[in-house]
C-alpha cells in the first residue's frame, strides 16, 4: 500500500486539500496534483532551480521538498506573482522589457527566486544579482537580460521608496 497523507496548503492565496503519496515532491504535487504547471521540473536534484517556489515567502527548491512537508504552509508559484487582474509584477514586466527569457523554461524559477531576493535585498549590485541567480541555470539567455531586469526593478524600487 502506498503511504499517503491528507494535507492542506495555501497556494497563491487559495487553500487546497488533497491526499498525497508521501514520496511525491512539492513540485510534482503543484504540477500534477493542482494543475499549476508553471512550476517546471528541470533537474530534480536541486541544482537547476527551475522548480523554485516560495514557501512562507522563502524561495526553495520544490524538487527537494516533499508535498507533505508543505502541509499547513503557504506556497507561492509563478502563477501567483501577477496581480489578481492579470497585471504582471514589476519583475515580470522587466523580464519582458529586457528580453530576460527565451524558451521560458527556467523563467518561473528565476522569477520566484528574484522576487524573494529583491524583497530582502532592495539595492543589490550586479555581482549580488549574479550570485543570487547562480542557483538558477538558464541555457538560452546568457543571463544578461535577467540581470538587467533585476537591476532595473531594484532601481525603480529605490526611486519609489
Amino acid at each position: 500500500m502506498a503511504d499517503t497523507r491528507d494535507i492542506e496548503m495555501t497556494v497563491n492565496g487559495e487553500s487546497h486539500a488533497a491526499n498525497v503519496e508521501t514520496r511525491t515532491s512539492l513540485g510534482d504535487f503543484l504540477r500534477h496534483g493542482l494543475g499549476l504547471t508553471g512550476t517546471h521540473m528541470g533537474c530534480e536534484h536541486g541544482v537547476c532551480g527551475a522548480c523554485t517556489v516560495m514557501v512562507d515567502g522563502e524561495a526553495v527548491r520544490s524538487c527537494l521538498m516533499l508535498a507533505v512537508q508543505a502541509n499547513g504552509h503557504e506556497v507561492t508559484t509563478v502563477e501567483g506573482l501577477a496581480e489578481d487582474d492579470g497585471t504582471m509584477s514589476a519583475l515580470q514586466e522587466a523580464f519582458w522589457k529586457h528580453h530576460g527569457l527565451q524558451c521560458g523554461f527556467c523563467t518561473p524559477g528565476m522569477l520566484t527566486s528574484l522576487t524573494a531576493f529583491l524583497r530582502d535585498n532592495p539595492d543589490p549590485s550586479e555581482r549580488d544579482v549574479r550570485e543570487a541567480i547562480s542557483g538558477n541555470i538558464c541555457r538560452c539567455t546568457g543571463y544578461q537580460g535577467i540581470v538587467d531586469a533585476a537591476l532595473d526593478v531594484a532601481k525603480t524600487m529605490q526611486k519609489g521608496s
Binding site: T37, G86, W96, G104, T107
Partner: peptide
C-alpha cells in the same frame, strides 16, 4: 519589439509537453 510570446511564459502559462495531460 518586445516579444509576443513572453506574457504567457512569464505568468506560468506556457504549454510544454509535460504540461499536457
Amino acid at each position: 519589439v518586445q516579444r509576443m510570446e513572453d506574457p504567457r511564459l512569464l505568468t506560468g502559462h506556457g504549454r510544454y509537453v509535460d504540461d499536457i495531460t
